[in-house]
Design a protein around this nucleic acid. Sequence first.
DNA 1: CGCTTCTTTGAGCCTCATCAAAGGGCGTGG
DNA 2: CCACGCCCTTTGATGAGGCTCAAAGAAGCG
Lengths: 252, 252
Amino acid sequence: MILGNARPNGHITPCEQCPLRRLPCLREFTPQELEFIKRFKIDELRVEPGASFLHEGSRSEHLYTVLEGWAFRYKTLDDGRRQILNFALPADMVGLQGAVMEEMEHSVEALTPLTLCVLPRRRLYELYSQYPTLAFDITWLAAREEQMLEQHLVSIGRRSALERVAFVLLHIYGRARELGLARDNIVAFPLTQQHLADALGLSLVHTNKTLKRLIATKAIRWQGRQFELLNEEMLSSIAGTEAPASKNRPFI
Amino acid sequence: MILGNARPNGHITPCEQCPLRRLPCLREFTPQELEFIKRFKIDELRVEPGASFLHEGSRSEHLYTVLEGWAFRYKTLDDGRRQILNFALPADMVGLQGAVMEEMEHSVEALTPLTLCVLPRRRLYELYSQYPTLAFDITWLAAREEQMLEQHLVSIGRRSALERVAFVLLHIYGRARELGLARDNIVAFPLTQQHLADALGLSLVHTNKTLKRLIATKAIRWQGRQFELLNEEMLSSIAGTEAPASKNRPFI
DNA sequence: CGCTTCTTTGAGCCTCATCAAAGGGCGTGG
DNA sequence: CCACGCCCTTTGATGAGGCTCAAAGAAGCG
């Protein structure tokens, strides 16, 4: 684990030119909201793959929105066992828990080179008191995170290894697709099988064998950082769920 | 599963006399906040044990705060497998997800006779625009729920059966104690072992055997709906965590 | 080309699931 | 007050799914 390997990005993307705003799955802002967000964002941060920028047990002065790249939120036990809680993709907010409550109860690590918008927690109250629609959006984001955790919990608690693998892959693929990261049903996946195993509560070995089994069904392909969805219906039926698809999602 | 077995309570406890407000773990309101909450609460509902009052896939007109009694949030798979996500105790808000997003993704069932404060979702925006401190509290509550789910996820994903059982029991006991529901280290537990199993992602049989094993360590006792904590330190060390303890927690 | 990281495969074992059935505890009705 | 039924708990037996250990391929990278 690399620590603290984060630095200012050199330049800051102005919010009105934010590439995420063009995505059809994200909601539009009013000019006033946009103006506030632009002031709310005080910096832009660059994090290298493998570096953690938020730490379990610490109190952070900032919260972040992923502008570009992939990350994951995780917790570790004393003896080193690790559980990945969820993945963070562009437009996802990260570190809200630490901003609202006493301290973070999980860590966040970059999977790819990561660009983050930096938002100071001390000005969160300003947002709540002056921009109730944005405050509502933040609650919405928290509720969505909760929803994803719940789905994940059912998966780990009650599904077989094959169902679990199918479920995460479909879930991640669906989220990437929404963000326009898929081309010809192919997404560049920055995950290793170890990440998958830690997300699913399985061992690396068993994850590998299960993954092979899933690939043998021809529902998916996954080679060299490229994930390809071959048969969405089949994958959905193995996973026991549909790929996520949201509209007018807020982000900040 | 009993459906729809909920009815108005006959009388409504006025918020300024709310018995929860006396609890030291909960935060105080300003008179203005209290006044608003009092108007926000439009009814009081009574639910029988075993009855579900919020349903996966439906859209609810209300959100609720537990005034008295225990409940649990859960999801079910098509083939009947059930996963309990978390338990709801007095001062916990329930149904927020359905109020903020399109629809509920989980159901909620009463464990004991349950008294609920009914809050209309259509007036949530009024709260956000006029009472930013309360809006912040709601986000806080959502973040706390997320935190509990995360702990639960680690437990199910990475801990052994014995550790899991110890963890939930310590967790639930801690929450009950905070609310003043413990006397001489004893709490009246409305759970069956089936509930425990569904929360832990274990089978009923294995939960029973594991529970016996835990009881054999003399860390706890559990007979006839009475749970007794005999050795908190030992239970903590088996669970790999401390019992929760919060101060100045918001509730609405 | 050599190093590191990640993937793949095999073997053996253990935890936990499933199946089956007996044993309380409690309320209800006879 | 007993008998019955229901719900929950407990126990045993058997097997499968997933874990651990070990080591050999691939693949990327300097």
